[in-house]
């Protein structure tokens, strides 16, 4: 294995569809809840410790070899918004496509057959990490980072925020990313003994609520 594979997978330019999604930031900008770097940081911090932690845990568990079908059902239960479930599956399918071309693997082929319309993205991400020779912690880092890098990039476009400010926000969140990746890895390692409920289920009510609204907007820059 090469640790550098993590850089390929976590690169924002990895062609897996993320660029069209704001992680709820577009709705928060419209509602006046994100107006600059400080509120972007608050938004990202909240997202990191909720959906970010949940995604990181699912990814880590998948990377450790937990049954992807069980993990996908666990992801469904942790994603009450039907709009967000649809987004998670769409992104899972897009990631699957990019990953199969990048790191061909029998496990990815069989997951693609099991979920032709896409499994939840974090579950796919965990299996992609395996295919790339990466570990559970790497998968958790990747998921946790995506949970904040997506909104940060989107807000640069939505508010014409200074891109240096957005990068500084991500850098300030780094210690918390470490914590979340650690927690996710610990939770994932408990799955074989404690079952799927060992995985965190922390939710962000406003992300769930506003996702349903955003999905109905006739004019928007981002798909979610």
């Amino acid at each position: 294995m090469s640790r550098a594979a993590l850089l390929v997978l976590a690169d924002g330019r990895f062609p897996a569809g993320g660029h069209a999604h704001s992680g709820g930031a577009e709705a928060a900008v419209r509602a006046g809840r994100i107006t600059g770097a400080a509120s972007l940081e608050d938004f990202c911090r909240g997202r990191l410790h909720t959906t970010g932690l949940v995604s990181a845990s699912l990814a880590a568990a998948a990377a450790l070899g937990a049954d992807p079908v069980t993990l996908d059902a666990a992801a469904d239960a942790r994603t009450p918004s039907s709009a967000l479930r649809a987004v998670a599956r769409r992104l899972g399918r897009q990631l699957m496509r990019a990953a199969r071309a990048t790191w061909p693997s029998g496990e990815l082929d069989s997951l693609a057959r099991e979920f032709p319309k896409g499994a939840h993205q974090p579950v796919v991400l965990g299996l992609v990490a395996r295919a790339a020779g990466l570990g559970a912690q790497d998968a958790a880092y990747c998921a946790a980072y995506e949970s904040v890098s997506g909104p940060a990039t989107a807000v640069v476009r939505l508010l014409s925020l200074d891109p240096f400010d957005a990068s500084a926000v991500l850098a300030r969140l780094a210690p918390e990313l470490d914590l979340v990746a650690d927690r996710a890895g610990e939770a994932a390692r408990r799955v074989p003994s404690d079952g799927i409920e060992a995985l965190p289920a922390v939710s962000a009510p406003l992300l769930e609520i506003t996702a349903e609204d955003h999905a109905t907007w006739p004019v928007r820059l981002f798909a979610s």
């Binding site: 928060a28 911090r45 409920e197 965190p200 922390v202 406003l206 992300l207």
Partner: peptide
């Protein structure tokens, strides 16, 4: 026997950061 809904909220002093921020409760 299959999970239908699994949701946790954590709020107040000592809760993980951002719980009252624009992604989670935003002052509600």
């Amino acid at each position: 026997g299959r999970p239908l809904l699994d949701q946790e909220t954590a709020c107040g002093p000592g809760a993980p950061g951002g719980w009252d921020g624009p992604a989670v409760l935003a002052g509600h």
